[in-house]
């Protein structure tokens, strides 16, 4: 514990602030930019920001992987109290599982979006959103 550079709360805040910043950058890209590709990039950035936020919810400072390995358990009997004690230093696995799912979904959405961009480009020969308005935007 000699590397105690930051207070726990500062590290935690750093994660949250970074995540919110990334989300705002993503929102800016998706809502303000006029190029279809940049809009899609904005969506991906937004996705990454939310994933970071989700991960930092389950963050425990200097926590370990949530695995009850034989080395960790040693010869302790697995009573409820022992499990509670062991799991104190572990990060929460649920947000990580959620993020894995969210990454896959984000990947799928980006793939669909890019294929639509290709279709739009073939149809209109432009990527500028202001020139594609057969339908009212």
């Amino acid at each position: 514990m000699e590397f105690k550079l930051f207070d726990l709360s500062i590290v935690e805040y750093a994660f949250f602030i970074t995540a919110v910043l990334i989300i705002l950058i993503g929102l800016y890209g998706a809502l303000v930019k006029k190029t279809l590709i940049k809009i899609v990039i904005g969506l991906s950035v937004l996705d990454a920001g939310i994933n970071l936020l989700l991960i930092s919810v389950g963050y425990v400072k200097s926590g370990t992987a949530p695995i009850f390995s034989p080395a960790l358990i040693k010869d302790m009997p697995l009573t409820l109290e022992n499990i509670k004690k062991l799991s104190e230093g572990m990060v929460d696995p649920v947000p990580q599982a959620l993020v894995l799912t969210a990454i896959v979904i984000g990947f799928g959405v980006t793939a669909v979006a890019l294929s639509l961009v290709i279709r739009l480009y073939r149809h209109h020969h432009t990527l500028n959103i202001d020139e594609i308005k057969n339908l009212k935007w």
Partner: peptide, 27 residues
Amino acid sequence: AEASFKYLIIGSLSSMFLLLAIVLIYS
């Protein structure tokens, strides 16, 4: 494709909000 892209942008933005709500509740 235009209609679908429009749907996709609104749809994925709003699903991000849904995920944010889930994060809030879980935290």
